[in-house]
């Protein structure tokens, strides 16, 4: 069987804020036996426009993503919410041609952890991390893509890792994209409950599968003076959690 050809969708947040998640994703895909390309013509999936009601703006970006990625066997990205947006592209087009292309891309777009587990049936080998961790289910990944068991199953193979259940793991952290800056007071009240739950686990490390949520949780934890360190799950699986966590200086 020839190697599946992957177009890596880095996501704009990972691109600018934490490239290491991109490298981790790339590494994991290669370990799982994929051929990975990073198309230069990618920027953003269009979520900010889509969630603000700018359907035209969202559709324009969707066209760009479709054109850039439709030639690959799969589009894979390290974010449930971006992949969720890509999966929703068909709703943006009334033109049957574009709609078809959107549907085709949607059908082969995957979030990295779900892809490794469900499509590639891959398990990490020889990865270790001596730490206690807790895991937050990012909403889009959980409810739009059904990412729930996969990250937990993958993390089980990491040696030395102690998983601690998080109370309200499936409850939104209050990020919500532009929501968190449009309604900062409400967002803060929500994230403060999340961080209290995180603190209650006593875990060294918080993991999640979406950088937006992670930045929100890490940023609030840091402001509260908590010592919890935050990583994307892919970083741990790729053995890249030995360096600085989100917000830590290199």
């Amino acid at each position: 069987m020839s190697k599946p050809k992957i177009g890596l969708f880095v996501t704009c947040l990972v691109d600018a804020m934490r490239p290491q998640i991109g490298w981790a994703t790339l590494k994991l895909l290669e370990q799982a036996g994929c051929e990975v390309e990073v198309p230069r013509a990618q920027t953003c999936c269009g979520q900010p426009a889509g969630n603000s009601g700018d359907k035209r703006g969202a559709a324009a970006l969707a066209q760009q993503v479709i054109e850039t990625f439709e030639g690959y066997d799969y589009l894979v990205g390290p974010s449930g919410s971006c992949v969720g947006q890509i999966r929703s592209y068909p709703t943006l087009f009334s033109d049957p041609g574009w709609r078809k292309r959107a549907e085709d891309l949607a059908a082969k777009s995957f979030e990295i952890l779900g892809f490794l587990h469900d499509v590639m049936s891959w398990q990490p080998e020889g990865v270790g991390l001596n730490a206690s961790v807790t895991y937050h289910d990012s909403c889009s990944g959980l409810r739009e893509l059904g990412i729930e068991a996969q990250p937990r199953a993958l993390l089980e193979a990491v040696e030395g890792l102690e998983m601690r259940p998080l109370n309200g793991a499936n409850v939104c952290c209050g990020f919500g994209g532009t929501f968190c800056v449009k309604y900062p007071e409400i967002s803060t009240a929500i994230i403060s409950e999340k961080t209290a739950n995180i603190a209650a686990t006593g875990a060294d490390i918080l993991l999640a599968g979406d950088l937006g949520c992670l930045m929100n949780m890490a940023g609030r934890l840091h402001r509260e003076g908590a010592a919890t360190r935050c990583f994307h799950t892919a970083e741990v699986l790729a053995g890249m959690a030995d360096g600085p966590a989100i917000g830590e200086d290199a």
Binding site: V14, V36, K182, M215, R220, G247
Partner: peptide
């Protein structure tokens, strides 16, 4: 809206795309 109540992680010195342009898949 963000920094009133939470800290913002400092962005990367170089974006993923620019690192990748330089180093390729090897990183």
């Amino acid at each position: 809206g963000w920094t009133e109540t939470r800290d913002l992680p400092k962005p990367a010195a170089r974006s993923f795309m620019s690192q990748h342009a330089k180093y390729g898949n090897g990183g």
